[in-house]
Amino acid sequence: MPETTPGLSAFFEAWDLFREPALAGAVAGALLGMLGIYVVLRRMVFLSAALSQSASLGVSLAWFAQVRWSVPAWIASPTTGGTAASLLAAGAMLAGRSSLSTRRDGVLGWVYLLGAAGTLAVGTRIVQEVQDIETLLFGSGVAVRPEDFTLLVQVSVVIGLLHLWLHRGFIQVATDQDGARVRGLPTRLVDALLIVSLAVAVSVGTRILGALPVFAFTVLPAMAALGLAVNVPQALPIAALVGGACGFGGYLVAYRYRLPVGASQTLVAALAVAAVHLLQRALAAIVALRNRQRHDHNHEHGPDCGHPAVPHGDHVDYLVGGHLHHPDAEECHDHGPLAGP
């Protein structure tokens, strides 16, 4: 008998069951998507991968401590373990910060590999938790405990407000560190705040969703948003929206097609980036077509082309149909309508 896939109406009929995990994907996607703008702008994509693997190791060690050493769960809770490990990793990265990008990349690689290999190694010592280890690495937010969801919302509100307040400082440090230092901004403090807030968000997200979707949410929504926004402040809420939509939409897709949740959320985010890229290409093609139509002349502009030459800033344009045309080696650009007196 062929297997039937559940409809989305069944999903919303059982909303009480799915509310926490579906909303956890949306909240974590929004928070990590917003923070991911800084990760992508600073070309430190590997940072979030390293932090999420460190958080995985911390969670595994917490389980190990509970199973092997009978440490009470309220002391060695997975959330505490994940947060402590990712903060330690953030500290190592801040301490290993160097003007040499090779050194910085090396530290990131070291943290990532220690986290990934450590998680797998610890997993072999806590056989009864192996399923949880796999969930941790690849993500499967099928069920989220209410207290974990509450913690995620609290962390998201605090970090979101902090970033709303200080976003101009974070943007300066992420896009123009030298300029910010010359202007006297406290770049080290801002940098530390950024990495610590990222470490906390990643550790809580990893505990609930797993390392794979957390890594995806800190990279892919930001890529999509930076392709859509006109500036970085605008990219921040767009990335949060895209991340939230991918977290929730990924959960729906996983339910509908019986896929692992983490993989589904990651795929949805990757497809969002591809869709934005295609949209950009299409828009660029339309603009180029309109440009060609506006520039429908079978000659190259020059002193003798017949079009009036108009000085424009530090160069000369040619007036065609009320628009300033500026030729360069490859094509003719429309520099807009001629401004009035």
């Binding site: 943007i171 300066q172 901004l185």
Partner: peptide, 13 residues
């Protein structure tokens, strides 16, 4: 606008 930011100005909305 980023050039106008000096020292701790970014904490003031």
């Amino acid at each position: 606008r980023t050039g106008a930011e000096q020292r701790w100005s970014f904490i003031s909305p």
